[in-house]
Simulated assay, not measured.
Amino acid sequence: MQIARLLLLVIAALSAFSGPSHATPASAYEACRLAGNDDTVRHYNPKAPDPKLKADLMRYLQSQISKPLQEADLINMVSYRCMEGKILACVVGANLPCDKISTSETNKGASEFCRINPQFDGKDVPMFATGHDARYEYQCKAGAAVIKGKTWELDARGFAKSLWKPIE
């Protein structure tokens, strides 16, 4: 009994010196306003429901997809992040990279593809070799990958600008 009382006193004393409490933001919108920029790409989490976020993400997804949608579609098909205090959303797809774009001018996949496929000299390197998150398009020249052009215009945070839309 005395040990339990002593333990409670220690916990009370420690909590008094832990500094101000930091309240969890009430919504994803509030969290984004507080964060400003957060490059963490997230999916809707039904275990931590945010009714406005769910409705807005569902409305955005429905504007992009012409089939009836369910919550599972929302979880699997839409990513969101914070930029300049606002929520931006991206529809995930095979050729639609919602992650940050690689800005490296060298591409290991493209280099390897050109090295082992000499018949592709003068031809474009396919995206399966470069990765869908590559900033540059490549072409094979004499067994090496050379930059042909850009695949994506980037926003200020390094994401494909055309894929991310504000939803608020």
Rank of each mutant, 00 (worst) to 15 (best):
L9W: 14
A12P: 09
S15A: 15
A16M: 05
A16K: 01
F17G: 13
G19D: 03
P20L: 10
P20T: 11
H22A: 14
H22Q: 15
H22E: 15
A26H: 01
A26P: 00
A28I: 10
A28Q: 11
Y29H: 14
E30D: 13
E30N: 10
R33H: 11
A35S: 11
A35Q: 08
G36T: 01
D39H: 14
T40L: 08
T40F: 03
R42F: 02
Y44N: 01
N45A: 03
P46I: 00
P46E: 02
P49V: 10
K52S: 12
K52N: 12
A55N: 05
A55G: 03
R59A: 08
R59K: 13
Y60G: 00
L61P: 07
Q62T: 08
Q62I: 02
I65T: 06
K67C: 06
K67M: 12
P68T: 11
L69P: 00
A72I: 13
A72V: 13
D73W: 04
D73S: 08
L74I: 05
N76I: 03
M77P: 02
M77G: 03
V78M: 07
S79F: 09
S79H: 14
Y80T: 05
R81G: 12
C82S: 06
C82K: 05
K86G: 06
I87Y: 02
L88S: 13
A89C: 05
V91G: 00
A94C: 09
L96M: 10
L96C: 07
P97R: 01
C98M: 06
D99Q: 15
K100H: 15
I101Q: 01
S104P: 06
S104R: 12
S104H: 11
E105M: 09
T106H: 08
T106E: 12
T106R: 12
N107F: 02
S111E: 14
S111V: 04
E112N: 10
E112T: 13
F113Y: 12
F113L: 04
R115I: 04
I116C: 04
P118F: 00
P118I: 00
Q119S: 06
Q119R: 05
G122P: 09
K123V: 05
V125Y: 04
P126D: 02
F128L: 03
A129P: 01
G131H: 09
H132R: 06
H132N: 10
D133C: 01
A134G: 09
A134E: 07
R135E: 13
